[in-house]
C-alpha cells in the first residue's frame, strides 16, 4: 500500500518501487510487478544534487518486444509518481535496453514533457491511466 511520503524524508528506490509496483497493466489483468515490467533493481534515485530536487531513473521491460502500449505504461508510471511523491523530482523513464524494437523512439516520447502532459489532457487516455494507477484494496 503506497502512502504519501513525508516531505522531509529522502526518497530511495524502494519507495519508488513501492509506488509503481501495483500499477495495473493496461492490457492484462496483472500488475507491473507481476508481469516483471518493473523491478526494484532497475530504479535509481539520486539525491546528491545541490538543487532541491532528486533525480529518479526507472527502466521498465515491456511484456513483448513490439508492445505498442509501452508509451502508455510510461505514462502510468509517471502519473502515479507525480501524485504520490511529495515534491517535484526529475523523473526519467526508459525502456530497459534491448527489450523493445523501437526503444529510442519510445524513450523520447515518454520523456517529452509537452507530449505526456498533452496526452493526459486527452479524456480517454486520462481515464485509462487513472484506472491503471488506481489503488484498489
Amino acid at each position: 500500500m503506497s502512502q504519501m511520503i513525508m516531505n522531509n524524508t529522502l526518497i530511495d528506490s524502494i519507495d519508488v518501487f513501492d509506488i509503481i509496483r501495483s500499477i495495473k497493466d493496461p492490457e492484462f489483468p496483472n500488475t507491473l510487478e507481476e508481469l516483471n515490467v518493473v523491478n526494484e533493481d532497475l530504479i535509481t534515485v539520486d539525491n546528491s544534487t545541490e538543487n532541491d530536487y532528486c533525480t529518479i531513473k526507472i527502466y521498465f521491460t515491456p511484456t513483448v518486444p513490439h508492445c505498442h502500449l509501452a508509451p502508455t505504461i510510461g505514462l502510468c508510471i509517471r502519473e502515479k509518481l507525480n501524485l504520490l511523491l511529495p515534491k517535484k523530482s526529475k523523473i526519467e523513464i526508459l525502456i530497459k535496453p534491448g527489450t523493445h524494437q523501437t526503444e529510442d523512439t519510445i524513450n523520447k516520447q515518454v520523456n517529452d514533457k509537452e507530449r505526456y502532459i498533452a496526452a493526459m489532457e486527452n479524456k480517454e487516455i486520462k481515464k485509462l491511466v487513472l484506472e491503471c494507477i488506481e489503488e484498489t484494496e
Binding site: P26, L69, I125, L128
Partner: peptide, 9 residues
C-alpha cells in the same frame, strides 16, 4: 476513435 489503446500521442 475513442479507444485509448488506439490514440497516438
Amino acid at each position: 476513435s475513442t479507444n485509448a489503446l488506439n490514440i497516438k500521442w
